[in-house]
């Protein structure tokens, strides 16, 4: 009886693993056949099922790019980048898509580039490990009086690293939640006020990466290159859509 139950569980687990793989392969075959809309649909299905992997976002970006949906492609590439910021292919495709639309590429300062070396999830994991390590070294320092000095200096080092990793967590929190990064989906006129007949301030090409400052009704206030402005919410999609894993 027990053996039967174990076998049943194993088969269920294998099926659960095969399903996203099958859909992923199917999407790949559709892409190779030039059916980019179909491929994009399969990748979207995977994402709706909760499989938010950088590979899925990347391939979705490719499928959207091939259809000429540059805004959607940039959005997918940027979502992939947020999950895997060190992936060279993602960075290259994002750069290429931005060049095609004429949108400005993000040029982060050196501290931001350092913080982008790890994803939000990686920073959280590092912070958690350092938190445990800090507690362990603190315990060792308290319980080993003969080596307390060396152990406590090590504890201080771990504490500094923990603070650094918390800065990394805070950086991604800022980028994803506090003032989230967003993508302008279609070429947009950025207005001085959230009114249809407001004066145009400047224009942004499709795929432009902006910071989303606030939402008011059907409008959202954005900031691009330090310049604030308003555009309809329907034309601006936040990069981080759900809690990142």
């Amino acid at each position: 009886m027990n053996f039967f139950l174990a076998s049943l569980l194993l088969v269920s687990a294998l099926n659960a693993g095969a399903q996203p793989n099958e859909l992923f392969q199917k999407a790949g075959r559709a892409y190779d056949a030039g059916q980019f809309a179909g491929a994009a649909g399969h990748y979207q299905t995977l994402l709706q099922q909760g499989f938010r992997e950088p590979q899925v976002y990347f391939n979705l970006g490719n499928a959207e790019f091939r259809q000429g949906h540059n805004g959607a492609a940039v959005l997918a590439y940027r979502r992939a980048w947020q999950l895997a910021p060190r992936d060279a292919d993602i960075a290259a495709n994002l750069q290429f898509a931005l060049e095609q639309t004429g949108a400005a590429s993000p040029t982060p300062a050196l501290p931001a580039r350092v913080l982008q070396a790890l994803s939000a999830r990686e920073w959280r994991l590092v912070a958690l490990l350092l938190f445990w390590l800090l507690a362990a070294t603190a315990c060792a320092g308290l319980l080993l009086p003969a080596r307390r000095k060396q152990v406590l200096s090590g504890t201080l080092g771990v504490f500094i690293l923990l603070v650094a990793s918390l800065v990394g967590v805070a950086y991604w929190f800022d980028l994803q939640w506090r003032e989230p990064e967003a993508v302008v989906m279609q070429p947009a006129k950025i207005l001085f006020a959230p009114l249809p007949n407001a004066t145009e301030y400047y224009t942004l090409p499709a795929g432009s990466l902006v910071r989303l400052e606030a939402r008011e009704g059907a409008w959202c206030r954005i900031r691009s290159a330090g310049r604030p402005g308003w555009l309809p919410q329907s034309n601006c999609v936040a990069v981080c859509q759900t809690p990142a894993r």
Binding site: G17, P20, N21, F24, Q25, G28, Y31, F51, R52, E53, P54, Q55, F58, N59, G61, N62, F65, D89, A92, N93, F96, A97, R245
Partner: peptide, 12 residues
């Protein structure tokens, strides 16, 4: 653009 990526080793 770079070509499609292979499926992840493990689905989360």
């Amino acid at each position: 653009i770079a070509y499609l990526k292979p499926a992840p080793a493990r689905w989360h």
